[in-house]
Amino acid sequence: MAWWQILLLTLYAGLEILDELQVYSALNTPVGAGLIAGIIMGDLPTGLFIGASMQLTVLGIGTFGGASKIDATTGTVLATAFSTTVKGMSPQTAISSIAVPVAAIMIELDILARFANTYFSHRIDHLIDQDKINYKAVERNVLYGAIPWSLSRAVPVFIALAFGRGLVQTIANALNGDLLWLGNGLAVAGATLPAVGFAVLLRYLPVKKHAAYLILGFTVTTLFSVLFSSIQALGTGLSQVNKGFTSIFNGLPMLAIAMLGLALAILHYKSIPLTKGAAQTTENQSNNANSDSDDEGEITDDEL
């Protein structure tokens, strides 16, 4: 790993948490981290693969601001960095042996950052009690909060990248040597972990109410994915037997499945009666209400 790669990854780790707290550009998400770490490490597919798996693992785990949550983004950064530079560390093994433990340990540092910020909040209380309030100082003490947040991610990433490589190499060697069974098990774990994200998400979504859509989504996708992968296998086989066979078959496009879901969601939306007109709105508010529903309609389309 070159020094500039360590530097850039550390910088990203320090910035992504600020992004998550504020703008939320989606580059702070695990899959976004996979993209960026992949570019920095010069191995985009590995980064994207690790980021995607971690994204799915934490799919349902998300509260903003409230509670500390498993930090899959930092886990992705380290797993990508080590998977691309350590011999014998496959992406799947990196997910379960690096990304998940790191993500879990990072919860503690997140808590630390939140505690540290209490100090600045108290300083602001103190400033307001002064005879002459220093307004600039009040604002500064809000912005200082960025420092604990940033350091809570940047410092561990830097330490791990700068000093962790030897350790990770030792682990990788063991997993491919004496502990091959463990290596295999960890790879299976890496492939299974997204299931946790799905299950957590189902706990938050009204599954019982919308069970039909869950079954529909699963069954339609299962059938199509088997069909598509079978045809792909068939095509590969045929092209080996017959050189004249040059058609290319792609895998199942997930966007098409999502469009099916979107269509169902739109149908559902249209079937909900809106009681807006019946509400206690007065004559001139009903005017506003109309333009309102137009605005909201726009939000609908864009958010989906």
């Binding site: 299931a195 998400l201 529909l216 969601a265 559902h268």
Partner: peptide, 23 residues
Amino acid sequence: ALTDSATVLGVFMVGALVATMVN
């Protein structure tokens, strides 16, 4: 209404993901 419809899409997608992403 918006949230409820979006959950339909969400639930549908979880079904689709279970079928493709747990390998």
